[in-house]
Design a protein around this nucleic acid. Sequence first.
DNA 1: GTATCCTAAATTGGCGCCAATATTGGTAAC
DNA 2: GTTACCAATATTGGCGCCAATTTAGGATAC
Lengths: 215, 215
Amino acid sequence: MSEVQSDTAAVSEERDVTELVLQDILTGMLPAGTWLKQIDLERRYDCTRPEVRRALDRLSQKRLVAHVPNRGYHVYQPDDRRAKEVSDIRVILETAVADRMVVNATPDSIATLRGLARYFDEMTLTGTILEHYEANLAFHRELLLLGDNQELVDLVSEIRQRTSSAPVSQWRTRARIEKSGREHHMMIDALEARDAEELKRLIALHIRQPADTPK
Amino acid sequence: MSEVQSDTAAVSEERDVTELVLQDILTGMLPAGTWLKQIDLERRYDCTRPEVRRALDRLSQKRLVAHVPNRGYHVYQPDDRRAKEVSDIRVILETAVADRMVVNATPDSIATLRGLARYFDEMTLTGTILEHYEANLAFHRELLLLGDNQELVDLVSEIRQRTSSAPVSQWRTRARIEKSGREHHMMIDALEARDAEELKRLIALHIRQPADTPK
DNA sequence: GTATCCTAAATTGGCGCCAATATTGGTAAC
DNA sequence: GTTACCAATATTGGCGCCAATTTAGGATAC
């Protein structure tokens, strides 16, 4: 393992190491199963030992990495059962507030969502994996905000990271990504038409799709 | 399957400090707003500085304590809006799997639940606040397990801690506690009768009750 | 030639010190 | 008498060292 990404460390002077490691796991730069040696991370992100340890502790609390005492930390192996359970939870949470989203939708918020959906499509073509991932996050976050439950928005953002440790398998084909983009627009359409049931259907489909198809 | 917590607490000479601080926050021993000075915690729990800091970092990640840079950590002030949002989330999650709970309920699991409900009632009279709290947790955990989604069980345990920083206001009167105990048994009755709708109604009522009444 | 044991290198993780910063109390000036 | 400023104290938080444990490699015995 050689230090390939010294440029990421160079640009950000005081960025939280936890975020950096998290991103590298989510973007697949640190594949599942990788042992995260403290020395390596120290050099890779140009930070101190305590910073590395705090990051690893936080990530293991979030269950993104596993901690084996006296052996070290390694990126969690994606677990099919867990992945399914997590997407079930997301379906439950996001469809549960669909009614409220329809009620709270204003022309303004719909315009914002259109913009974010378009930005996602743009990033499909021109952006990095990370930018694309974050564009997707931003869209869903904005949509969920209409549910008028800030805690739920944060919670979904949180559990979303929980099994996205398999970004490769989830965002594999371009066809699927483009389908996701189209679904975003369809959700906005349902929102505009105040059709809560259709919105729920679309959300469930949208979330389950990536996890279910590989089987 | 049933793990006895009292053993682990007594036997393990080196119990995790995070758990100890967490418990003291949940039981109201460390009231909301309290500044958690590192020196104090060090002495209080007879542990080292790094242990204290790791615990504080973990608790601030869980948003149970707030961190003000160069000022320290203090127990989160309970927030009415957040509390309401969290119980809404709990209602969504726990009622969502009610159908599956009804389907998966066996005579065995119902017997276990009866035992836990009785144990809760017992602790109402003879137990400490902590034992009582944990008995309640154990009952709801066992109930949720019937939903056949381990991630959801863990998630609920997690968000449950998120606003329980107001244990005093939640468990104030004996009358309410006894009502909770009765509701546990009613839930089991609904489960036994395979009445999913009644179970949902009871769960929603049970969760919302403590938070809504004070208003 | 292979398996086992023992030694050496590497890695984790506990612990304490010290600098940077905030807070409090006291003093002086208005 | 009150306010503002300064100094002393207390608290946080960064950093590095060293012990404990594991792993890998080599040597020896069978």
